[in-house]
Deep mutational scan, measured.
Amino acid sequence: HNLTITQGKLFFHYNPKLCLSEIHKMEEVSGTKGRQERNDIALKTNGDQASCENELLKFSYIRTSFDKILLRWEPYWPPDFRDLLGFMLFYKEAPYQNVTEFDGQDACGSNSWTVVDIDPPLRSNDPKSQNHPGWLMRGLKPWTQYAIFVKTLVTFSDERRTYGAKSDIIYVQTDATNPSVPLDPISVSNSSSQIILKWKPPSDPNGNITHYLVFWERQAEDSELFELDYCLKGLKLPSRTWSPPFESEDSQKHNQSEYEDSAGECCSCPKTDSQILKELEESSFRKTFEDYLHNVVFVPRKTSSGTGAEDPRPSRKRRSLGDVGNVTVAVPTVAAFPNTSSTSVPTSPEEHRPFEKVVNKESLVISGLRHFTGYRIELQACNQDTPEERCSVAAYVSARTMPEAKADDIVGPVTHEIFENNVVHLMWQEPKEPNGLIVLYEVSYRRYGDEELHLCVSRKHFALERGCRLRGLSPGNYSVRIRATSLAGNGSWTEPTYFYVTDYLDVPSNIA
């Protein structure tokens, strides 16, 4: 807008934040220059609390790290170098490059900038070799853009010569660093050979998330399962459950009422301010606690030095998902009996873990797994792929695949051998790939016309006998059925096997 004052003059007093240069501009645009008398524009009460600059400061050096910015700028000295009290560095987070010096300023003089007072450097006698002032900004957020400017702080001049310097606002972004852990990993099994893994992005990506790394490792069953005799009275049979499938998407929606109208769909109840505040506090606490764990609990591995020492970490090797089922080394339970199943799973520490690289999504279907087997899954978020990966501390989750139908069934015939004193040795093959492992066998036998009897055969007993022995049988026709019990439950009964026990007292003698 054009402003013209045809008559009258300007009068400025007691404006401590208004620089004289701005008042002189007002004289020019209003056409009143030359009308004012000496005392109409006070030299001592206008701009006496402001830094009124008329020179431009330029930054000469900028260096960044993930949490620091090192700045240096060209030296500046007023005509009387004693008038320079120091520099004021202003900075704040700036997602967009549209910041002005006066953003967030209120009537009390406060604003949204963080201000650092910096002492002037030592003055050199040689004007050509003056030290460049600077400042190291610490405690910054990774991968965050900051708006920065600097200006001088000078003393009051009796001659009211307006001098000083100020830089333009520059924008500097800190470097990326390792992201925080992925949030809320959930693993479920939808079949006997697959596990579905879902997660949420890290709360602090500290860069642009480029991919996720998912490692999985087959877990050995508890050692007590191999040692305890679950045929003993009072000892509860062990059981394991597989990871249940995901709930429906509708039930997972946030901010939804727990109660549904019987007449149909209901609208979600909005969260109160107290609920939102509580969630923010919980989120802040979780982030602080995660940072504490990362800094205190997890110790970084030592990389190899120039002395030739090897990095103890196993090298990563990509495998196809079809090879995942046989990740671990199978060892027989008892070496003397080769027909026992290889369900003991000690994992070799030198073995390469299978892994998958996930790009542009937060889910993965891990296939080719062994049925009813526990897996430990390790999830890392990465925001750099080359020249070397920059990934987060791992988040861990466990899951067990679903049982395989008929995996616990005894394959092959049940054979028998009759000894003296009416002892019958029953023999059968253990299931080759049971659900988890076989903890015991149930032997059901009966003599024709009598009630059915049951015998429990422990895992250890089966390994020693290759089956079991029935003792003290009365003469007669017998039928026997056997079924295995694994961590997933009972298998199917075998087809009945028949044998006849004679009275050993009636056996004919070869003595003449």
Results as ranks from 00 to 15, higher is better:
Lys406Met: 07
Val507Arg: 15
Asn295Phe: 02
Leu225Lys: 05
Gly476Tyr: 00
Gln219Asn: 10
Asp291Ile: 04
Pro312Gly: 06
Phe285Met: 03
Asp409Arg: 06
Ile366Arg: 13
Val334Gly: 13
Cys468Lys: 12
Arg316Met: 12
Glu282Asn: 04
Pro496Lys: 04
Leu440Tyr: 12
Trp216Arg: 10
Gly264Arg: 13
Asp409Ile: 10
Thr328Tyr: 10
Phe246Ser: 09
Val324Pro: 05
Val359Asp: 01
Val327Phe: 11
Glu452Cys: 15
Glu279Pro: 03
Ala335Val: 13
Ser392Val: 00
Glu249His: 07
Asp503Ala: 07
Ile438Gln: 03
Val423Pro: 02
Phe298Trp: 03
Lys432Gln: 03
His211Trp: 14
Lys278Arg: 05
His416Phe: 12
Ala309Thr: 05
His416Ile: 10
Leu437Ile: 03
Lys278Glu: 03
Phe226Asp: 04
Met427Lys: 13
Leu379Tyr: 06
Asn360Thr: 09
Lys432Val: 07
Ser268Arg: 15
Trp242Pro: 14
Ser239Phe: 08
Glu389Asp: 07
Ser342Phe: 12
Lys406Gly: 08
Thr210Lys: 01
Gly412Asn: 05
Val443Asp: 01
Asn255Tyr: 04
Ser458Thr: 09
Gly374Gln: 08
Val439Met: 05
Pro245Cys: 09
Ser398Leu: 05
Lys302His: 11
Leu464Val: 06
Glu249Thr: 14
Gly436Val: 05
Ile482Leu: 04
Ala381Gly: 04
Leu369Phe: 09
Ala399Asn: 01
Asn255Val: 08
Asn208Glu: 14
Arg301Leu: 05
Ala484Leu: 12
Ser248Ile: 15
Lys361Arg: 06
Thr340Asp: 11
Ala395Cys: 04
Val443Cys: 04
Phe226Glu: 08
Asn360Met: 09
Pro475Gln: 12
Ile366Val: 12
Ser203Gln: 13
Tyr478Gly: 01
Asp408Pro: 01
Arg316Phe: 13
Leu379Asp: 01
Asp385Trp: 13
Cys468Met: 14
Ser243Gln: 07
Asn208Leu: 06
Arg466Val: 08
Ser342Met: 08
Ser257Cys: 09
Gly322Asn: 09
Val324Arg: 15
Cys269Met: 02
Arg481Cys: 10
Pro349Gln: 07
Pro354Ser: 06
Ser243His: 12
Thr241Gln: 09
Ser363Gly: 11
Tyr498Ser: 07
Lys357Glu: 10
Ile377Arg: 00
Ser257Pro: 11
Arg301Gly: 03
Glu227Ser: 10
Arg318Lys: 10
Lys406Ala: 12
Pro244Gly: 13
Arg483Pro: 00
Phe337Leu: 12
Asn255Pro: 14
Phe462Asn: 07
Pro270Leu: 04
Ala488Ser: 07
Leu321Arg: 07
Ser486Gly: 04
His371Arg: 13
Met427Gln: 08
His461Gln: 09
Ile482His: 02
Glu247His: 08
Gly207Pro: 01
Cys267Pro: 02
Asn477His: 08
Leu379Phe: 08
Phe499Ser: 01
Pro244Gln: 14
Glu258Pro: 09
Ile209Met: 13
Ala220Lys: 07
His294Lys: 03
Val324Trp: 04
Arg459Tyr: 03
Gly234His: 11
Glu442Phe: 05
Lys233Pro: 11
Phe372Asn: 04
Pro403Gly: 01
Glu310Gly: 14
Thr272Lys: 07
Cys382Gln: 01
Ile377Asn: 01
Pro338Met: 11
Ser474Pro: 07
Asn339Arg: 09
Pro508Ser: 12
Asn295Val: 03
Gly264Cys: 03
Phe499Arg: 01
Glu290His: 02
Phe419Leu: 09
Met427Thr: 09
Gly489Cys: 02
Phe298Gln: 01
Leu228Phe: 13
Tyr396Glu: 02
Ala220Gln: 14
Ala220Pro: 06
Asn208Gly: 10
Gln380Glu: 07
Ser243Phe: 12
Ser486Thr: 10
Trp216Ala: 08
Lys432Gly: 04
Leu293Val: 14
Leu470Asp: 01
Pro245Asp: 06
Pro245Leu: 13
Ala330Ser: 15
Glu227Cys: 13
Arg301Phe: 11
Ser203Phe: 07
Ala381Leu: 00
Ala330Val: 13
Val443Ser: 01
Phe462Gln: 13
Glu356Lys: 12
Gln219Met: 03
Asn326Phe: 13
Arg313Asp: 15
Val327Gln: 11
Asp291Met: 01
Gly322His: 08
Glu281Gln: 12
Arg400Tyr: 05
Arg370Ala: 15
Asn339Met: 04
Ala330Arg: 11
Ser344Val: 09
Ser315Gln: 07
Glu282Ala: 05
Pro238Phe: 06
Pro475Tyr: 10
Val214Glu: 00
Ala463Gln: 12
Gly207Cys: 03
Asp503Lys: 04
Gly489Val: 04
Cys391Asn: 01
Cys269Glu: 03
Pro300Arg: 09
Ala330Lys: 15
Glu217Lys: 02
Arg286Ile: 03
Gly325Trp: 14
Pro338Ser: 09
Ile366Pro: 01
Thr415Lys: 11
Val501Ala: 06
Thr210Gln: 02
Gly436Glu: 15
Val423Asp: 06
Pro245Ile: 15
Gly234Gln: 06
Val329Ala: 11
Thr333Asp: 05
Ser315Tyr: 09
Ser392Lys: 00
Val299Trp: 04
Gln380Arg: 03
Ser268Thr: 15
Thr343Arg: 11
Glu279Asp: 03
Ser243Ile: 10
Asn339Ser: 11
Ser239Thr: 10
Asn208Met: 06
Trp242Ile: 04
His294Arg: 01
Asp311Tyr: 15
Tyr500Gln: 06
Arg353Phe: 04
Glu452Tyr: 06
Thr333Pro: 12
Ala263His: 05
Arg240His: 09
Thr343Glu: 06
Glu350Lys: 14
Leu321Ala: 14
Glu430Arg: 01
Glu417Asn: 07
His454Thr: 10
Thr210Pro: 06
Thr485Met: 14
Thr386Glu: 14
Asn295Ala: 05
Ala394Ile: 05
Ile438Asn: 10
Val457Ser: 04
Gly472Phe: 10
Gly207Ala: 03
Asp450Trp: 09
Ser283Asn: 09
